[in-house]
Each structure stands twice: as structure tokens, then as C-alpha cells.
Amino acid sequence: MELYTPILALALLATGFAVFSVIMSAVVGPKRYNRAKLDSYECGIEPTPQPVGGGRFPVKYFITAMLFIVFDIEIIFLYPWAVHFDQMALFGLVEMVLFIATVFVAYAYVWRRGGLDWD
């Protein structure tokens, strides 16, 4: 646990600073009310009314997020494997090649089906 307390210290410091800044900007800055100023920016035209969060957005982002998750998971397994690779040697290599090949199959599928194309 001792290894982690310093991180807590730094995190507290940073949080304090950030929160302080956010509050300061509200306190220090001038306040001149202007209705147009509070509208969201749309190059000067009347902004289209939208729900918070902007409503819906392209499916593409979901797909990217999902692909990311899949590969991130792969990385989860690669790290411990890499760290202890020297002990496993050949066995580790063979097994991991099988693993990577499996992931690669999915990857090839996604690629070919246009999952990696952004348009």
C-alpha cells in the first residue's frame, strides 16, 4: 500500500489545483449578462435546439469504441504474458501466437467488412 500513498498525495494536490481554478474563474471573472453569449456557438446563426448531449451521433463512434475494447482486452492478456515471457519461453510463444491469430481473424473480418473505414 505504501507504494500508492504518494500517488494519492499528488492526486489530491492536482485536484485541489483544478477545483481551485474552476472556482476562481467563476469568482474572479467579470459578469456581463448577454443572452446571445449563453447560446451555444454555431457560427453566429441561431442555434438549433438540442437535448443535452447533442442527441444522437453516428454509429461509427460506437463501432470504434467496441473495437477499442476488444483490442484493449487483448492487450490485457499480452502484458502479463510479456512480463513473464522468459519463464514460459516456447510454450508461451505458441500459446500466444494462437491467441493473436484468433484475434487476428476477427480483425480481418472487421477490416474486410468495412468496420475500419471511416467515411
Partner: peptide
């Protein structure tokens, strides 16, 4: 825990696909 994460991720992928 590692494996659970994997499974959770797979679930996310499939779940979001269905929900979407």
C-alpha cells in the same frame, strides 16, 4: 478478474449492438 473483464467487454459489445 482479467477474464471477467474480457467477458464484460464482450458483453458490452454485444449488448450495445442489440440495444442500438
Amino acid at each position: 478478474a482479467f477474464f471477467v473483464m474480457v467477458v464484460a467487454a464482450a458483453e458490452v459489445v454485444i449488448g450495445l449492438a442489440i440495444i442500438m
